[in-house]
Design a protein around this nucleic acid. Structure first.
Lengths: 348, 348
DNA sequence: GCTCGAAATGTTAGCGCTACTGGTAACGCT
DNA sequence: AGCGTTACCAGTAGCGCTAACATTTCGAGC
């Protein structure tokens, strides 16, 4: 028996949900017209748009963007790759990015590398499978394979935060080295002679490395003969506990320190509060500086001298660049230096 | 002339990128075998897998997940809807969620509602178009239309943070009202008689409202005759400046206050630092409590009495629930109460 | 009424992938 | 030899949508 007595073969399992065709037949128009009524209503007569909208709401239709993506080759999606979600600086940047993209109908895919460029490469690979229309990525140091993937991708890319002279495409950021240089210059101008830099260097965090090297260079230039004192908690964790630990190490190893310069306000805040607890007067016995100008810094007692960095603006500028490129307005890669500013307060 | 002298009509613009078919013909197997070699290598002979992998890397093939999604009706995507990205509590939860999902190959779509349930509905609608395999959403209060969309979605959903007796599907959180009740009980047990609650109530933030109502109930129960003093900065912004403002209002309007109970550690930290600046002794002149047990709270001087809340764990538990449901293990909706704990420190 | 061009709508053919079905080679068993 | 079983692979038919082209409708102008 080759004939099939059981009727037509089972079709594959469909999604069971309302499709464009259902809407079209209810509205008595072609599927194409429904598609147009949704995406370019100005091309469709008002009467038809109304009828289609009625059909959409009575059926509860929700367009399947995967199908749209496949057919149109545009995903209305932006991939964002950051070191970690739970660091406020990156969260702020994402917030800025999201605020710019949302009105244009773009949605954000977010991935965290945990400061590993290998993990970053994996993420890029996975994200490319979703065919984003644009990509935002923190940092300019990638694996060779990742760089290649990005170059070949033919989508607009914004590298953010770090400065470099050879971005893959667009760049939005500021110079970490210049920022450190500026605050070292500031403390030296205030008469401090024995600065110590305190950071938590984690393999892969090139921004932290930049800052440390810049510190050494600037000290060598401004305070000849002075050794470039650096303390490092080594774990890569950025929290107040680490700040306390760094304070301990610095006091023990470099008791001559007159200004302790932290690579993050978080460290500085932890250390400053600990100083008060121990009765170390700030800036009398020891001056302290931070980096980032977090909100806490202007509330601390004494208020914290630090460097303000344009977190949110990095996100918004990046978003604007992406939007411009995706709508075909800008063609050229841009490099945007958003700068920084030394915020002189009481702690140094 | 109806015949076309220009040769075959232009075909639609293809993606120009390497497809499964290219890989298949290079490896001399069928497209289906390539697909299997990627997703279920154990079904394919070792020799073939090797050949396919070679073909993939020489062509630089990156699978198009939109096509995969369309064909398989699974997106390997989770939608996460939170009030705002730049609040550390939600960032922590996302971090936990991401950590659980990544190893299973799921990617996170993130959207911020800015505490508006109308914006939330829009977001849900937009996200449903991507056909996520699961959804994580902060809060249990939604618009009727949003609730309907979620119920009809036929994907596992986790509502988080708030407690409710009627979740849409799964629930992971703790009771805000119980937490406030507990810390009010704590301060009353410590002998304080005139508590004032300080919050920043923003329309739509039902969690804040829960806390405030719970405060009033508990005061009425434990301190009969005592009015439920509440101050509200009204802006909805949660930062240290707002904490200072709340302190001002409370001191002016309710000078009899002996313990000022803030709805967030952020407020409490701002107020506590301001007290020291003004020479108000804490807890001598005024006791202070917070909510959230942020890192700063144990570093402040005096350390802050507060309520610890399981931010990261909310994310991880939600992720585990989603994974279980998506792999078809669990069928039942679950309600997970992660609890909280009063952290007694020096400030009250 | 007729022509003509613009506006509105319809038709066709995929986008790149996977579910499903079925086929073939290799091997063991009676 | 004949049969069934297992392991592997190929062919086919879409998933739901949109690009590209084709066709119809309609109003303006003569």
């Amino acid at each position: 028996m080759t004939a099939d007595p059981l009727g037509p073969p089972l079709t594959r399992r469909a999604t069971l949900s309302v499709t464009l065709n259902d809407v079209a037949s209810l509205a008595n128009v072609s599927p194409q017209t429904v598609s147009r009524a949704i995406r370019n209503p100005e091309l469709v007569s008002e009467r038809t748009v109304t009828r289609v909208q009625w059909a959409i709401s009575t059926t509860g239709y929700v367009p399947n963007l995967a199908a749209s993506n496949l057919a149109s080759n545009r995903s209305k999606t932006i991939a964002a790759i950051i070191p970690t979600i739970s660091a406020s600086v990156f969260a702020d940047a994402l917030h800025g990015l999201d605020a710019v993209l949302t009105p244009h109908g773009y949605q954000l895919f977010i991935g965290a590398t945990d400061y590993s460029i290998d993990r970053e490469e994996e993420l890029i690979r996975a994200f490319m499978g979703r065919r984003p229309d644009g990509l935002f990525i923190v940092g300019t140091k990638h694996t060779p394979a990742a760089t290649l993937l990005l170059r070949k991708s033919r989508i607009p890319i914004v590298e953010a935060w770090n400065w470099t002279d050879e971005p893959i495409d667009n760049l939005v950021g500021f110079s970490n080295s210049d920022a450190i240089e500026a605050i070292v210059e500031y403390v030296v101008s205030k008469g401090y002679k024995h600065p110590t830099f305190a950071a938590s260097l984690q393999p892969g965090d090139s921004r932290a490395l930049d800052r440390q090297e810049s510190f050494a260079r600037t000290v060598a230039r401004l305070l000849p003969g002075e050794p470039p004192r650096v303390v490092d908690s080594g774990t890569g964790v950025i929290d107040m506990d680490a700040g306390v630990r760094l304070l301990d190490i610095a006091l023990k190893r470099h008791p001559e320190t007159d200004v302790l310069m932290f690579a993050s306000d978080i460290f500085a805040a932890g250390a400053l509060l600990e100083c008060r607890r121990r009765g170390i007067s700030v800036p009398g016995d020891l001056a302290i500086t931070g980096f980032g100008d977090f909100e806490i810094s202007r509330h601390l007692l004494p208020t914290l001298t630090t460097v303000a960095v344009p977190n949110v603006e990095i996100g918004t500028r990046a978003g604007e660049l992406l939007i411009a490129r995706m709508s075909g307005i800008g063609e050229e890669s841009e490099m945007v230096d958003l700068g920084f500013s030394v915020v002189a307060r009481e702690s140094a």
